[in-house]
């Protein structure tokens, strides 16, 4: 079968290691022997018994939720603008402008934000022109991390929403208008309900990506700003506590899954009511 080589490769390179990691999360950690084979829930209990890790999870969740919300508010008008107000050529060019920052990689993009947010950086110098003095305090802060995350996630949101807006029949908007609806009424009553699947898809994508963000919290948040993905890395690669690191990874994926599925179900139920 033609797909077999790829299938074997992904199974050996991803699925088998993931299955092993799930098994490892039930093992016991020992500082001298690293890992002792066992079947125990102690790694999961350790997470839920330790206020520190719960705070890390909670911080990851609220930062991701807030970043996603900001992306939604900022992304909807831009996606609509690209779908309705721009010529094909301009759209193609703007799309490249949006995609370059997305595909430039987390290391380069985050270092660019460090240059802006730094206490002696671009933003401080700019605000200095207006008489602002003293440190900005954006580096090593939640605000700084959210700014960095939003800039990574916005392109994803814009592109997802844009393709949905383009699939909406423009005649519907014209009909609304000819019946006397103002622009915001049309958006609220016609466009956004129709675009709901895309809004949901874009938000879920942004939320998942920021739940798993690594570079932004590490570089902008600094060593004392803990989020889940850097903590997984720390436990697995530095502390070498594989059982606990594995448990952390699965808790992260499970929480992400439960929250995204939960929100999707709620939104879809409301959306069905709307469209009836």
């Amino acid at each position: 079968m033609l797909a077999a080589p790829g299938l074997v490769f992904v199974t050996l390179g991803l699925l088998l290691p993931l299955a092993l990691m799930l098994r490892n999360s039930l093992n016991r950690y020992d500082p001298s022997e690293l890992m002792i084979s066992a079947v125990t829930a102690e790694n999961y209990l350790k997470f839920f018994g330790d206020a520190f890790y719960q705070e890390v999870l909670w911080r990851t969740v609220w930062i991701s939720g807030l970043s996603t919300a900001i992306c939604l508010v900022a992304g909807v008008p831009v996606a609509y603008f690209l779908a309705r107000h721009v010529s094909a050529l301009a759209k193609r060019m703007l799309l490249i402008v949006i995609l370059v920052p997305l595909l430039i990689g987390n290391a380069v993009r985050t270092s660019a934000w460090m240059l802006i947010l730094n206490d002696k950086g671009v933003l401080a110098a700019f605000l200095g022109l207006f008489g602002h003095e003293g440190p900005l305090g954006l580096m090593y802060s939640a605000q700084g991390v959210i700014i960095g995350l939003v800039s990574v996630l916005l392109p994803f949101m814009i592109i997802t929403l844009n393709s949905v807006f383009e699939s909406i029949d423009q005649n519907l908007e014209d009909a609304g208008q000819s019946l006397g609806a103002g622009h915001f009424t049309i958006m609220r009553r016609i466009v956004l309900p129709l675009a709901m699947p895309g809004v949901l898809a874009g938000s879920v994508l942004c939320f998942i990506l920021s739940m798993n963000a690594y570079a932004t919290p590490v570089l902008i948040g600094g060593p004392t700003f803990h989020m889940m993905a850097p903590t997984v890395y720390q436990q697995i690669a530095k502390v070498m506590n594989w059982p606990f690191g594995a448990a952390l990874a699965f808790i992260l994926m499970a929480v992400t899954l439960i929250l995204t599925v939960g929100v999707s179900v709620v939104v879809q139920r409301r959306y069905r009511k709307w469209s009836e």
């Binding site: 299938l7 991803l14 993931l18 798993n212 997984v232 697995i236 594995a246």
Partner: peptide, 29 residues
Amino acid sequence: FWGRETVSTVLMSPMVVPGIVGGSALFVF
């Protein structure tokens, strides 16, 4: 063929599984 959807899901899964999770699993493996 039977299971085409599953085959597609498996082949696309490296894009879905978060990089840190996939990376740590591969490292330990």
